[in-house]
């Protein structure tokens, strides 16, 4: 069942993204920025954890999850250390994805040459 939910949830996020791209003049960069902020808002409302419970990786694969990880980290930091934890914890959960992306991109850019 979780596979069906994952398919529908991840598909719906991509479908909404495609509709935004078709109907407006925004670029994919704008789209991803908007989706991350939307992810932050859903996470702040406490809804994103429920999405992950229902849809599993369907909710963690789209870029909206990046916003969710940021908000979750900040809130966890606040609950353990108070207001200073808000700043200390902001990047904790998102660190793995962000660091991996930066390191892998750097290595790939060193190895491969752009064809244009």
């Amino acid at each position: 069942m979780i596979y069906v939910n994952a398919f529908i949830f991840c598909g719906l996020v991509c479908l909404i993204g495609q509709i935004i791209l078709e109907e407006t003049k925004l670029t994919p960069g704008h789209l991803n920025t908007i989706l991350v902020v939307i992810g932050c808002i859903f996470s702040g409302c406490g809804l994103y954890d429920k999405f992950i419970l229902c849809a599993g990786a369907g909710a963690t694969v789209p870029i909206t999850n990046f916003g969710n990880l940021l908000v979750n980290g900040a809130l966890q930091g606040y609950y353990s250390e108070g207001f200073i934890g808000l700043l200390k914890g902001l990047l904790v959960n998102a660190s793995a994805g962000l660091s991996a992306t930066i390191i892998i991109s750097f290595i790939v850019a060193l190895i491969f040459k752009s064809k244009n």
Binding site: A6, F7, I8, C10, G11, C14, L15, G56, A57, V61
Partner: peptide, 10 residues
């Protein structure tokens, strides 16, 4: 395609 990504992720 997005749904397929979700299933592969799961």
């Amino acid at each position: 395609v997005g749904g397929l990504c979700g299933v592969i992720g799961q």
